[in-house]
Simulated scan of single mutants.
Amino acid sequence: MDGPAAGASVRTLERGLAVLAALAARRTATLTVLARDVNLSASTVSRLLDTLVHQGFAEGGEGGTYRVGPRAAQVGSAYDAHDALLAAAGPVMRLLVDDLNESANLAALRGGGAVYVAQVEGRQLVRMFTQLGAAAPLHASGVGKALLAWRDDPAVTALLGTDPFPAFTPHSLTTLDTYRAELAHVRAQGYALDDQERELGVRCVAAPIRDAAGAVVAALSVSAPTSRLTGDEVPRFVVRVTQAAQDISRALGWTAPG
């Protein structure tokens, strides 16, 4: 959609957001007060409020008053959670990179993919670089495995879609059965390993990050060339990455069982 119709839609969105912001500032308000706050006619604000109420972003109270609805609270809490995650992860990731001298990444499940939301680069001349906002394939990445391993089978199937999955290398897992078996292994050991499944010559160790309720909300990973992250080095990386993930989880309010 473009032209006048698109412009009208944008103006309607801007006005709707202005009404929602005014309502949030006052906590409760009448139609008349909101119309005055946003400098719009009462009839226009009434239509906008009807839409906001229908979508759950506002609620109509007694006596003709309105208040912010649960959908708006959900949006706000999602931002708070993301902000808290980055604040908790940053210092831990820097310490992890200082220790291992390899790049550390933070990924979260966004829109059906494992999206990188933070990175601290290592100091090696040849180092792994990930574009923030880029998505890693769920079936062929350490962060993808760590994000999915503690979800139930229907959720995993819905996120992965129909197999066979793309084979990036000869090591890629391409069937749902083999991937489910891998996730069971990840749950049992508490971490995930991408052993050249996305790119030949690259290994990745990843671990889950949990919130206060124990739900996996992100994954922490360290990637390096196989020449540095050798098979003998994997156990050392596993200890440090899982410990760092637990430190971030505790900062988010998680308490380890037992």
Score class of each variant (00 low, 15 high):
residue 1 M to C: 14
residue 1 M to Y: 11
residue 4 P to Y: 11
residue 5 A to C: 05
residue 5 A to E: 12
residue 9 S to D: 12
residue 10 V to M: 07
residue 12 T to R: 15
residue 12 T to V: 11
residue 15 R to W: 01
residue 15 R to Y: 03
residue 18 A to W: 00
residue 19 V to D: 00
residue 20 L to I: 03
residue 22 A to S: 12
residue 22 A to I: 01
residue 23 L to M: 06
residue 24 A to S: 08
residue 24 A to Y: 01
residue 26 R to P: 01
residue 29 A to S: 09
residue 29 A to D: 02
residue 31 L to A: 03
residue 33 V to M: 14
residue 34 L to E: 00
residue 43 S to A: 13
residue 43 S to L: 13
residue 43 S to M: 08
residue 45 V to Y: 01
residue 45 V to N: 04
residue 45 V to Q: 02
residue 46 S to R: 14
residue 51 T to D: 14
residue 52 L to Q: 03
residue 55 Q to A: 15
residue 55 Q to Y: 12
residue 57 F to G: 00
residue 58 A to D: 00
residue 60 G to E: 13
residue 60 G to N: 07
residue 63 G to E: 11
residue 65 T to Q: 07
residue 65 T to D: 03
residue 66 Y to F: 15
residue 69 G to A: 10
residue 70 P to L: 15
residue 73 A to V: 05
residue 74 Q to C: 08
residue 75 V to H: 11
residue 76 G to P: 02
residue 78 A to L: 09
residue 80 D to G: 05
residue 83 D to L: 14
residue 85 L to V: 00
residue 86 L to N: 03
residue 86 L to W: 07
residue 89 A to Q: 05
residue 90 G to N: 07
residue 90 G to K: 03
residue 94 R to Y: 08
residue 98 D to W: 11
residue 99 D to G: 08
residue 100 L to V: 11
residue 101 N to Q: 15
residue 111 G to D: 12
residue 113 G to S: 11
residue 115 V to A: 05
residue 115 V to I: 07
residue 117 V to Y: 05
residue 117 V to E: 07
residue 119 Q to S: 10
residue 120 V to Q: 04
residue 121 E to A: 15
residue 122 G to Q: 08
residue 123 R to P: 03
residue 123 R to V: 13
residue 126 V to H: 10
residue 128 M to T: 15
residue 128 M to V: 15
residue 129 F to C: 12
residue 134 A to T: 13
residue 136 A to V: 00
residue 138 L to F: 04
residue 139 H to L: 11
residue 147 L to R: 00
residue 149 A to Y: 00
residue 151 R to Q: 12
residue 151 R to M: 10
residue 151 R to T: 06
residue 151 R to I: 05
residue 153 D to T: 14
residue 158 A to F: 06
residue 159 L to H: 10
residue 162 T to D: 13
residue 164 P to E: 14
residue 164 P to M: 10
residue 165 F to G: 08
residue 166 P to R: 14
residue 168 F to G: 00
residue 170 P to L: 09
residue 179 Y to I: 06
residue 182 E to V: 07
residue 184 A to G: 13
residue 187 R to G: 02
residue 188 A to P: 02
residue 189 Q to W: 04
residue 190 G to C: 08
residue 195 D to M: 01
residue 196 Q to I: 08
residue 198 R to I: 04
residue 199 E to P: 01
residue 200 L to R: 14
residue 202 V to H: 06
residue 202 V to R: 07
residue 203 R to Q: 03
residue 205 V to D: 03
residue 207 A to G: 09
residue 208 P to V: 09
residue 208 P to C: 13
residue 209 I to F: 07
residue 209 I to R: 00
residue 210 R to Y: 02
residue 212 A to G: 10
residue 214 G to D: 05
residue 218 A to L: 05
residue 222 V to F: 09
residue 225 P to H: 15
residue 225 P to E: 14
residue 225 P to N: 15
residue 226 T to W: 04
residue 226 T to G: 15
residue 229 L to G: 03
residue 230 T to A: 08
residue 233 E to Y: 08
residue 238 V to C: 06
residue 242 T to D: 06
residue 243 Q to V: 09
residue 243 Q to W: 09
residue 245 A to N: 02
residue 245 A to Y: 00
residue 245 A to P: 00
residue 246 Q to E: 14
residue 247 D to Q: 15
residue 249 S to I: 00
residue 249 S to N: 04
residue 252 L to P: 01
residue 254 W to H: 09
residue 256 A to T: 14
residue 258 G to L: 11
residue 258 G to Q: 13
